[in-house]
């Protein structure tokens, strides 16, 4: 195995020099927009996010206070008929809907649910790390507060995701600058989808078929 490593690296070193551009490699021009023109968390950027997320046929609700978040989450769960739902144990208490006739499961990192247990749940409610307005993308960071591990937001068929206004930026570069690549990240732009049959877009395949977003602030 180390033989292969040394051989491949030797080939690549020889090739790197053999094919080196005569004029050298110019510096990378970064004249694209590295930041947006809209202020993070401002009204305009939130409007853009809502428009772009809805474009993917995800549902977006806006909330001003934690109580309104809890009410919006409850509405999303009820409308989808999602009764048994899971949250990461460190999800903001104020965002959790009143239990009522629903069943809440909390997942603690020390006691992860099994895959069949996850599969038996109707929905998952989480927070998020960053949202990108221009592309309608929400980013979850594994293990970050209120976001849980990756399987949690994958196996249940309905994902309700709360986005704080302060975490909404306009562009992709602004978002990457805020993210820590050492933890697993999931960039979510609408529900799962496929265009594999005649390029006809169908929402909802293996990932959650329903995505609801609650924007707070």
């Amino acid at each position: 195995m180390s033989g292969a490593r040394e051989e491949v690296l030797a080939r690549l070193r020889a090739a790197r020099d053999a094919g080196a551009p005569r004029g050298g490699v110019p510096p990378v021009p970064r004249d694209y927009h590295r930041s947006g023109s809209l202020e993070p968390g401002g009204r305009e950027v939130l409007d853009l996010l809502v428009e772009r997320v809805e474009d993917y046929r995800a549902r977006v609700l806006c909330a001003g206070t934690d109580d309104e978040v809890a009410a919006a989450v409850a509405r999303c769960l009820d409308e989808a008929g999602s009764r048994r739902f899971v949250v990461p144990a460190d999800l903001e208490q104020g965002w959790r809907p009143r239990i009522g006739d629903r069943e809440l499961v909390e997942e603690h990192p020390s006691a992860p649910l099994t895959v069949p247990e996850l599969d038996a749940l109707d929905a998952v409610v989480t927070g998020s790390s960053v949202a990108i307005a221009l592309t309608g993308t929400i980013v979850l960071a594994g293990g970050a507060p209120g976001q849980g591990r990756r399987a949690l937001t994958l196996v249940p068929d309905h994902h309700v995701c709360v986005v704080r206004a302060a975490d909404v930026v306009e562009t992709v570069p602004e978002a990457l600058a805020r993210l820590d690549p050492s933890v697993p990240l999931t960039f979510i732009s609408g529900p799962s989808a496929t265009s594999d049959i005649e390029l006809d877009r169908v929402e909802g395949v293996h990932g959650p078929r329903r995505l609801d977003v609650v924007v707070v602030g």
Binding site: D55, Y56, G142, G143, R149, R150, P184, L185, S189, S192
Partner: peptide, 21 residues
């Protein structure tokens, strides 16, 4: 590629994360 502003899912991971994946 797909002619979308962003594809539905992009995953990134770095080595192994205990308790996740």
């Amino acid at each position: 590629s797909t002619g979308e502003r962003m594809n539905p899912y992009t995953s990134t991971w770095t080595g192994v994360t205990p308790g996740d994946g």
